[in-house]
Amino acid sequence: MGPLQRGGVTKMNTRVFSYINAWITKLQSRWQTIVIAIPFYWLLLFFLAPFAIVLKISLAESIIAIPPFTPLINFAEGGVLTIRILFDNFIFLMEDDFYVKTYLNSIKISGISTLLCLLLGYPMAYGIVRASPATKNILLMMVILPFWTSFLLRVYAWMGLLADRGTINNLLIWLGMIDEPIRMLYSEFAVYIGIVYSYVPFMILPLYANMEKLDTALHEAAADLGANPITTFLTVTLPLTIPGIIAGSLLVFIPAAGEFVIPDLLGGGNVLMIGRVLYNEFNSNHDWPVASAVAIVLLLVLVLPMMVYQYYQSRKTED
């Protein structure tokens, strides 16, 4: 400001400058609050608040209108009646065999897929950690690369492989191992393949991060004290990689349980998974309250694993 004043700036102008200056100083002293506030309120509005609305609508009654649910204001009238209406959608879900079965099936499929991802991902992560630095970087890049390419298209790629007249069946027939095509697409098998294929990088990366941090001297110390490689693995490596196993498993299990694209494209109508049911309930049947109720129940099912994940995530950043 010094040179400006010398240039003959009016008193008024100086005052404006000092206001602005004061304002900037204030802003600077508050910058921490601002840094937190922007993302915080964004998430509050667009991430957390919507759940409240879902909850509200799941408690409403379905009507044929746009939007197709009863407005909230009606709740205030007649306490007893309201309560009956309130849980109608949830009671409907619990009583209908179809939904219960679908939830259980979703959990089964994503649970088994998680296990398969672990079986494939653990040795791969271990192999990457053990590789020489140059190879390690290439392998890591190869694991990360699928992240960047379209998920939908990668699932689509399996349609071509698994179809009745797809690559695998053609190959097997050509080899003379089978006469008739095997049914693979639109089956649970295809869904397992699709989930493992799409989610195995999510298993490998946390495991890799975990294993990379382990001091190799620990393995050597175990060997030095008489543990053969298998015992070393069981007593040292495995217990110390449990955080990675948990983080990776949850990163696979939770989104897989609500997966829509994979069961829809690879499972067709033959595999019941809750994500697909919810999507159809919403987009085809236009039963929004039931769809909301389905979402709330799915959220309740997944809330525990999510909290476990959250716990590990926060512990990791504190280290």
Partner: peptide, 28 residues
């Protein structure tokens, strides 16, 4: 705690839930 929860939850939240809840928010 709430903040870090809201940051890490979208990473694992099934897409159908996020999609549905956002749509209902926009309609409301």
């Amino acid at each position: 705690l709430l903040f870090s929860g809201m940051i890490s939850a979208p990473l694992v939240m099934p897409e159908v839930i996020t999609g549905l809840s956002l749509l209902l928010l926009f309609i409301t």
